[in-house]
Design a protein around this nucleic acid. Sequence first.
DNA 1: GAGAGATCCTTGCGTATGCAACCTTCCTGG
DNA 2: CCAGGAAGGTTGCATACGCAAGGATCTCTC
Lengths: 168, 168
Amino acid sequence: MATTSTTSTGLLEHPYLTTVGLFVESHAGLAAAMERRLDVETGMSVQWFEVLIRLARTPGHRLRMSDLAAQTTLSASGLTRAVDRLEAAGLVQRAACPSDRRGSFAVLTDAGERRVMAALPLHVQHLTELLEGIFSPPELKQFAALARRLRDGVNPEAALASSPECGD
Amino acid sequence: MATTSTTSTGLLEHPYLTTVGLFVESHAGLAAAMERRLDVETGMSVQWFEVLIRLARTPGHRLRMSDLAAQTTLSASGLTRAVDRLEAAGLVQRAACPSDRRGSFAVLTDAGERRVMAALPLHVQHLTELLEGIFSPPELKQFAALARRLRDGVNPEAALASSPECGD
DNA sequence: GAGAGATCCTTGCGTATGCAACCTTCCTGG
DNA sequence: CCAGGAAGGTTGCATACGCAAGGATCTCTC
């Protein structure tokens, strides 16, 4: 009926595969648009913005390196370098952790806070322009709910880090 | 009422921001899981798999470099190098385009087809394990529909490349 | 039919990434 | 008190990426 090489051809249309495909493509498109504009308007990469935002929304404006790594797209080593750069740019400082001398905190500086807060409205405005023509308000809520379920199932560490709400 | 630095603090909870945050986190988690397992079970990166799958589902098993770039996460130069590596691995060949001598095709080799087709069921199985506990069938359909809308709005090039359906 | 400009792909260069190895510090059991 | 092992961070190394520049080809206009 079919050669070995075509036996599993039907899987190319498998619902999980096509859904994940759409998901990945939509992410790629959205990420590219965000990245481009964020860079143009604020000179920051998405990674920087991500780190700074997470610090900004944390009481005390400080987070352990390991927590930060768990919440962002970055690996531990990636985060180390990213914080190196942020520190060189004066937006973040490292601080020793008094209770565990192995660990260290990344602390948002005043300059860092000014920088995120200046970038934030531009970013939100951009997201609004991108999304308001695509999702109606109820669809947006649905989408957020489904995305949350997916994240909780697949990235539980990030989930518990942002119990109340989670921003990018 | 508030200092300059806190004026836009409320934006940290903006619906678009939190939704996109969840979306990005869910993608990161899913991508990490897929990547890890795909590498362990097939020795391929997601990028390779993505390219090979798109070739496999195209009649003639060939696609222009530019089309391939538009459909994947890769930039033009990134695709060039990826195809270099795939060609070195014997999974893909380049072919001249008769109608436009600037262009070239990436063509799936027999070895390449065997490789994707062997990987495909493992991948689908993995996706199933990941997702079946998270989304009910109707939720999956909803999610796919919303993701499609988002992709169409934000990444139109990929959209028209896969009119009928779209796999990862 | 000739030149200006756009398009396709490839390369040079700088940079960001992850993995694995490493050092330091913490913790646990004897 | 003191191994032995686990965990937090940082670095060496190799790799992959994107941007911008470049060479070749197509296309459109006059």
